[in-house]
Simulated assay, not measured.
Amino acid sequence: MRNDRPGYQYRANKDGTRVHYWNPRRAVKGASSALSIIRLPDDFTEDQISVECQRLTNQLRPEVRNAGNAPTFTGTISSLIECYRHDKTSTLHGVKHSTRIRDYEPSLRVLQKNVGDRDINALKASDFTRWFTGWKKKGHRRASGAIKLLRLILSYGAGERLRGCKQARDILSDMRFEQPGERTVKMTYDQCLAIVKKSAELECPSIGFVEALKFETALRRIDVIGEWSPPPEGGEFRWRGLTAGDISKEMILTLKTSKTGAAVARDLNSYTLVTEALKAYKLPEIGPVVIDEDYGKPYWENRYAEKFRKVRDAAGVPNNVWSMDTRAGAVSETVEATGSLEMAKDLATHTTVKMTKKYSRGDGLEASRRIAEARAESRK
């Protein structure tokens, strides 16, 4: 049985073809019998079936988990996590949906799977050290993320006066763990151009357009492709993001960034990569600007990342270059071209130059050459 398509079932037709379904009761234990089975498109590929089954399952799990009475704290880490997830006053419910799915939930799953049965009242510093060391073998960022969420849930438990949480939190707060190094990879202009051209060849030009727009404008991906998230009152996921109305007839893009609310205006006519991408990607007259060609709808985060990797690999771009590195490429190229961190800061809508420095990646060779030329010029 495949475990990458939770809830999947099918019905065979007489001609040998299959009708694909996602069954919520097969996907999530405890799902209501009132939930309907969803038929998947007949032309879905194997990969598309897996992605859709995972998306629907991940969407359903929190609803099932939060249904009914509040969970009972039994003293274990797992029960604390369930209380933290259920309590609407916890910090988990104060972050954006994308942050919760990308950062919080994966680390909570690591904790629940590996140490969920541990009694919080019996935890010692040696436990935390041993856990971190074990998690680090599977990835430094994974280990750091798990420790970060462990601090958060113990603080939540301490605030709710749950047994053992304050003592465990105090022990953990005095401990320091090695932090993962900052990323040093950046996407280059040539790499982005290769992705733009390859995406057109593979008939998924939306990928090239998104990466080109990010590279030229330093916008975050979420500000370009938008975000699917549930409304505060619960219910079906809704999309919000960049729409055709945000781009004028003169090709001036205006928006407010999702992270800081900073006002942004960009002349798309002035960007060579965007011009190249628009040879294959047609901007819609109404509705969301970026559409997933496979579904006819805006991208879900995981779908975009999956398709980006396929285009990147086909374009011959190294697999250590991620979509998130496009923004770093924009900032780095700006600093190299202008010698100004302030200009790069404005482009990326950072609040501090310190943050801009993290995105400006490279060995400083070109900057040092400009400085040497300027000093030599001043001596004449």
Score class of each variant (00 low, 15 high):
residue 250 E to D: 13
residue 99 T to C: 07
residue 50 S to M: 05
residue 106 P to V: 00
residue 82 E to A: 12
residue 141 R to V: 09
residue 261 G to I: 06
residue 223 D to R: 03
residue 171 I to F: 12
residue 202 L to R: 09
residue 353 V to H: 09
residue 172 L to P: 02
residue 20 H to M: 01
residue 181 G to A: 10
residue 242 L to T: 02
residue 124 K to Y: 11
residue 372 A to Q: 07
residue 133 T to Q: 06
residue 246 D to G: 09
residue 61 R to P: 13
residue 44 F to Y: 09
residue 272 T to L: 11
residue 253 L to S: 05
residue 114 N to W: 12
residue 176 R to Y: 08
residue 343 M to T: 13
residue 107 S to L: 00
residue 34 A to K: 15
residue 20 H to S: 05
residue 340 S to K: 00
residue 359 Y to V: 03
residue 321 V to K: 01
residue 155 S to N: 00
residue 99 T to I: 06
residue 379 R to C: 04
residue 190 D to L: 04
residue 349 T to V: 08
residue 194 A to V: 10
residue 302 N to C: 03
residue 348 A to S: 14
residue 344 A to K: 05
residue 281 Y to E: 11
residue 27 A to V: 04
residue 341 L to N: 13
residue 3 N to C: 03
residue 167 Q to P: 12
residue 282 K to C: 12
residue 244 A to V: 09
residue 273 L to H: 07
residue 250 E to P: 14
residue 134 G to Q: 00
residue 90 S to F: 07
residue 214 K to G: 06
residue 232 P to V: 01
residue 81 I to H: 05
residue 374 A to W: 07
residue 108 L to N: 05
residue 84 Y to A: 07
residue 269 N to Y: 04
residue 373 E to I: 00
residue 367 A to N: 15
residue 120 I to V: 15
residue 304 Y to Q: 02
residue 361 R to S: 02
residue 380 K to R: 01
residue 271 Y to F: 12
residue 303 R to E: 13
residue 246 D to I: 04
residue 37 I to D: 15
residue 83 C to L: 03
residue 372 A to V: 06
residue 3 N to K: 08
residue 32 S to C: 10
residue 211 E to G: 02
residue 223 D to S: 07
residue 379 R to P: 11
residue 246 D to A: 08
residue 342 E to N: 04
residue 155 S to W: 00
residue 141 R to W: 14
residue 53 C to R: 06
residue 334 T to V: 13
residue 219 L to E: 08
residue 22 W to E: 03
residue 143 A to H: 11
residue 121 N to P: 13
residue 378 S to Y: 06
residue 346 D to V: 12
residue 138 K to R: 11
residue 52 E to I: 02
residue 12 A to K: 01
residue 81 I to N: 03
residue 317 V to R: 05
residue 24 P to R: 13
residue 38 I to C: 13
residue 28 V to H: 04
residue 85 R to Y: 09
residue 193 L to V: 04
residue 295 Y to S: 15
residue 2 R to F: 00
residue 201 E to L: 00
residue 111 L to N: 09
residue 59 Q to F: 14
residue 153 I to K: 04
residue 184 T to K: 10
residue 197 K to M: 08
residue 124 K to S: 11
residue 65 R to H: 07
residue 150 L to D: 09
residue 364 G to T: 10
residue 314 A to S: 12
residue 321 V to G: 01
residue 91 T to R: 14
residue 175 M to S: 08
residue 117 D to Y: 12
residue 206 S to M: 07
residue 136 K to Q: 11
residue 12 A to H: 01
residue 205 P to T: 06
residue 129 T to K: 14
residue 319 N to I: 04
residue 296 G to D: 13
residue 185 V to I: 14
residue 263 A to C: 09
residue 339 G to K: 03
residue 222 I to Q: 15
residue 222 I to E: 15
residue 51 V to D: 13
residue 365 L to C: 10
residue 192 C to T: 06
residue 276 E to I: 07
residue 310 K to M: 11
residue 247 I to A: 03
residue 286 I to F: 13
residue 228 W to A: 01
residue 31 A to R: 14
residue 206 S to G: 10
residue 148 K to G: 13
residue 312 R to P: 02
residue 42 D to C: 10
residue 279 K to Q: 00
residue 4 D to H: 08
residue 10 Y to F: 08
residue 124 K to M: 12
residue 190 D to G: 11
residue 41 P to M: 03
residue 233 E to I: 08
residue 28 V to F: 05
residue 248 S to N: 14
residue 27 A to Y: 03
residue 284 P to G: 07
residue 219 L to Q: 05
residue 238 R to N: 00
residue 61 R to D: 04
residue 92 L to G: 05
residue 164 G to Y: 02
residue 275 T to D: 13
residue 167 Q to I: 07
residue 172 L to T: 05
